[in-house]
Design a protein around this nucleic acid. Structure first.
Lengths: 141, 141
DNA sequence: CTTGACCTTCCATTCGCTGGAACCTTTATG
DNA sequence: CATAAAGGTTCCAGCGAATGGAAGGTCAAG
């Protein structure tokens, strides 16, 4: 049983984040009844590290929770896990495409601007005239 | 002079968002002194459309505000605008690279998983073992 | 005179934390 | 024994960029 500081060090999460995850119901730490301090078993710490990794991989907390449940469910079917991951990959791919399209549009705009000491600016004009309605980038995630 | 509903329709922003932008100090609408209703000139509406476009291009509100000031500043230098845009493009490029790296890692992980009715799952194992520390994806924007 | 459309403000919620205040506990030191 | 440092606890506020909804004022038509 380890204190929160140790759990943070070993999991890569901050203490704040561990408490937050507990508030959110993702994990439940044991308590030292003498002083109310949290105590973490190696199991809990493995869960925390799992959550840390899943977050780094870009899953939101709801997905992280689901994945953690799958991790700890001996009756899980790996196809369910794979489906979740594939959906996430698809979302990332979509986001990449959006960003690349945006990047190309913006680079075009930048290329049209002389970028000197005068006030004439194709970029400002381009934004103002809003030629680029295909932008529609969902700015989430 | 047009009411907020019209301003929203013409700018592409929602009424809520227009009020929010005013709260944030990005724009200042005139007021009908009789009833306190906002009234928007064509100039204001152009500004709102500009903000809408700049947001769609992924600039944050602070950048949108700067860009709007540049738009309405006859003494601006287009090189300043271009510098802002180029910085934004660079950030997008960086984000694309991160996401592509993440996507590749996740696809590898997915490919290692049979995805059947059994519980054995390379994905869960992969997240748990956290082999992928290079992930470190800043999840912002 | 009432209905409905339109406008106003204000407060709460989202997501995933992070910072800080105020307070308790444990351990080490003068 | 006093105290200071280092750890722990809870709770509240804030970030960004809106969005949803409540409560209420205003206006034109029927």
């Amino acid at each position: 049983m380890k204190p929160i500081r140790e759990a943070a060090r070993l999991s890569g999460l901050s203490e704040k984040t561990i408490r937050y995850y507990e508030d959110m119901g993702l994990v439940t730490a044991a308590r030292n009844p003498a002083n109310g301090y949290r105590e973490f078993s190696d199991c809990h710490i493995a869960d925390l590290r799992f959550l840390h990794q899943a977050r780094e991989m870009g899953f939101d907390l709801a997905a992280c929770q689901q994945l953690l449940q799958l991790k700890n469910d001996p009756c899980r079917r790996s196809c369910d896990v794979k489906a979740m991951l594939q959906q996430h990959i698809d979302e990332i791919a979509q986001r990449v495409e959006q960003l690349q399209a945006l990047q190309a549009t913006l680079q075009q705009l930048a290329d049209q601007c002389r970028g000197d000491d005068t006030s004439e600016c194709a970029i400002i004009d381009g934004i103002a005239s809003a030629e680029c309605e295909h932008l529609a980038v969902s700015r989430k995630s």
